[in-house]
Deep mutational scan, measured.
Amino acid sequence: MATGGRRGAAAAPLLVAVAALLLGAAGHLYPGEVCPGMDIRNNLTRLHELENCSVIEGHLQILLMFKTRPEDFRDLSFPKLIMITDYLLLFRVYGLESLKDLFPNLTVIRGSRLFFNYALVIFEMVHLKELGLYNLMNITRGSVRIEKNNELCYLATIDWSRILDSVEDNYIVLNKDDNEECGDICPGTAKGKTNCPATVINGQFVERCWTHSHCQKVCPTICKSHGCTAEGLCCHSECLGNCSQPDDPTKCVACRNFYLDGRCVETCPPPYYHFQDWRCVNFSFCQDLHHKCKNSRRQGCHQYVIHNNKCIPECPSGYTMNSSNLLCTPCLGPCPKVCHLLEGEKTIDSVTSAQELRGCTVINGSLIINIRGGNNLAAELEANLGLIEEISGYLKIRRSYALVSLSFFRKLRLIRGETLEIGNYSFYALDNQNLRQLWDWSKHNLTITQGKLFFHYNPKLCLSEIHKMEEVSGTKGRQERNDIALKTNGDQASCENELLKFSYIRTSFDKI
């Protein structure tokens, strides 16, 4: 039985969820670079991206490699990797027998973001014989899940209580170790020597080791999670996991709180800001991140802002960003909400898709409305799209047979046209069989910064309504002859009103 693990408890099935942008060198404390989270699957090609990484700022997932063999891993080693800020997950990587050479110096898994409450997941690794993470000293947050690894031993010899604050939620089941077939031998045991430290858990006094050649490092209890030197002297209180010299914040392997210019500090002093819960960055760093993602459509890219001495992905609820200094300031009234469309555009074809934009005031991208039916549609669209004030790209209304009016965009005031449909149009209306009105132009103002209007096959939309939009939106004169079809717009509506004058002759039985 794995020490510190839980057996036999019912657990939810383990679901495996399925960018080499360097964020800056980590400095003297770390020998390499800070790398983003990685999802490495199918083959070993991307694994080489770990070569210079000291910190993975995010998670590391290595999974679904069915053609790899043990010899493929023999020359692979990433000794610079010290810390993973989120979680480490391995799933069905064939041929991998140990992690001792792959990650010989991995010391800390912070667990800032977890995989279903777990910071370390080893699942269905069919050839893994031992973990071998002999320098792993601290899992700051989260638990361990090690399950269905039929060859995995050296679990009962690990004292997880020396690595985690609590072992109650560890789930370590259905491994070879369960069948008591392992016969784990710690260093020196074969020669009758006791080389590794022994600890007591559940009444068992057991030597602690990761492999037959690597003991588990056990520091004096007084050192807590700070770690200790090879001689057993406690590291500085700002260290986490390990250090090369005692009581020196510049000799830590990793930091308990924050890293700044080669030393570990309790908090980031001005003019620095907390970033990702582990390091200090200056304003320029946060500003660069903001600008890199301002026009990016890459998933996970955030326009970072500053709030409460932190550089964070977005302002919290009730705050909006001051564009001059990136500071989050309290909103006066309802907060603006910028919604970034991942692929640059979004099609609204149902109430469900409209709900995804609920509360958005600025759309960074283009909207395509293609709704053919739905219950209580006008009210639903207004509830979900009615706060949109600005669209950076274009607005396209296409084959939306259920629409009679666009009044559900009740606050839309600006279409920038930074991206144009077919390279020309910022407003595009095609084949809307029941569209009769755009907006009530006596109450609604709309500016279209650039781009043209396109109207074709809107049989109940009168040309007068379209011409009014040209005047109000500032697009009059931009359109070419064929942009607004004269014969297919309003051709099934009563669009022309003329005053009919009647004269009559009164007659009676005795007068003409």
Rank of each mutant, 00 (worst) to 15 (best):
V55M: 01
T320F: 14
E238L: 07
E314Y: 04
E97Q: 13
P197Q: 15
C331S: 04
P249T: 11
A198K: 15
T45H: 07
I84R: 00
L326Q: 12
C268T: 02
C311Y: 00
E57C: 06
Q204L: 07
V121E: 01
E147R: 01
C335F: 04
F73L: 01
D288H: 13
F78I: 15
P197T: 13
G95A: 06
I185T: 08
P31V: 12
L44V: 12
D86W: 00
Y259V: 07
T229A: 07
F78P: 00
C239S: 00
K129R: 10
L96S: 14
C235N: 01
G142P: 00
I172G: 01
C219V: 01
D178M: 12
R145L: 07
F283I: 10
F283M: 14
K310L: 12
E130T: 09
C228G: 00
L76V: 13
L131F: 02
Q204H: 11
Q303L: 12
C196D: 00
H226S: 10
A198F: 08
L174H: 15
V55L: 00
S225T: 12
S284L: 06
S237M: 06
N138I: 07
F275D: 01
L233G: 09
G32K: 03
M65P: 01
V144G: 03
E57P: 00
D261L: 10
L326S: 07
L106Q: 00
E238H: 10
T320N: 10
W278T: 07
M65C: 03
C153Q: 03
A198E: 15
Y171P: 00
Y304R: 06
A156H: 14
T189I: 12
A230F: 07
C255Y: 02
F115R: 01
L64D: 00
Y94A: 04
D178C: 13
H127N: 04
Y134V: 05
S77A: 10
G37F: 02
C234K: 02
D165Y: 09
R256L: 09
F283D: 14
M83P: 01
P246I: 14
E33H: 11
L332G: 15
V218K: 12
D288Q: 14
C286M: 15
L102P: 00
G111E: 00
G32F: 10
L64M: 02
S323D: 14
G262R: 08
L47W: 00
N257H: 10
K80G: 12
P70F: 05
D261R: 11
S166F: 12
P336N: 13
N309R: 13
C252S: 02
L164T: 13
G300K: 15
L332C: 09
L29G: 11
C219K: 01
F116T: 01
Q276S: 11
P220S: 04
H59A: 06
P249W: 06
C196F: 03
F258H: 06
C228Y: 02
Q245M: 07
G188T: 09
G188I: 11
I312S: 10
C235R: 00
Q245S: 07
H302V: 11
Q276M: 07
I84P: 03
T221P: 08
C35L: 00
V173M: 04
P197G: 08
L90R: 01
L174F: 12
S324P: 09
R162K: 12
N309E: 05
T189F: 13
D86G: 09
I306K: 03
D169A: 05
V55I: 10
S237A: 12
G241W: 01
N138Y: 07
I312L: 08
V253E: 10
S213H: 08
H236L: 02
R162F: 04
S54R: 03
I163Q: 02
P270Q: 12
H307Y: 07
G95N: 08
R110S: 13
P313K: 11
H307W: 10
H212M: 12
Q299D: 02
K217C: 08
G203R: 07
C239P: 00
L29S: 08
T68W: 03
H59E: 00
T194S: 13
N170T: 09
P249S: 09
N175H: 07
I185G: 07
Y304S: 06
Y272L: 14
D277I: 04
T221E: 13
K67E: 04
C153V: 00
R141N: 06
P313Y: 06
F275W: 10
N295Y: 09
M125Y: 00
E238F: 07
E180Q: 15
L90T: 05
L131T: 14
H212D: 15
P270I: 13
S244M: 14
D72E: 15
I82R: 13
G318W: 09
K100P: 00
K80I: 08
L99E: 00
I158A: 04
L81V: 05
P269S: 10
P31A: 12
P269L: 06
L106V: 02
S143F: 11
P249Y: 04
C182G: 02
K191C: 08
R41G: 04
C235S: 01
Q245W: 04
D75W: 08
F91L: 02
E124T: 00
G142V: 01
L136W: 01
I306M: 08
V265P: 00
C328N: 02
L174G: 13
L233Y: 05
F115K: 04
E33F: 06
N43Y: 09
K100H: 15
F116W: 01
N105D: 04
N170I: 12
E147T: 01
C328K: 02
E57H: 10
F205Q: 07
G203A: 11
R69H: 02
T107C: 08
I146P: 00
L128S: 01
Q245I: 13
C255Q: 03
Y171S: 14
W160T: 01
C53N: 00
C223P: 02
S324W: 04
A198V: 07
C209F: 02
N322T: 06
I201K: 06
G262S: 08
G333R: 15
G300F: 07
L50Y: 03
F73A: 02
C235G: 01
G32W: 08
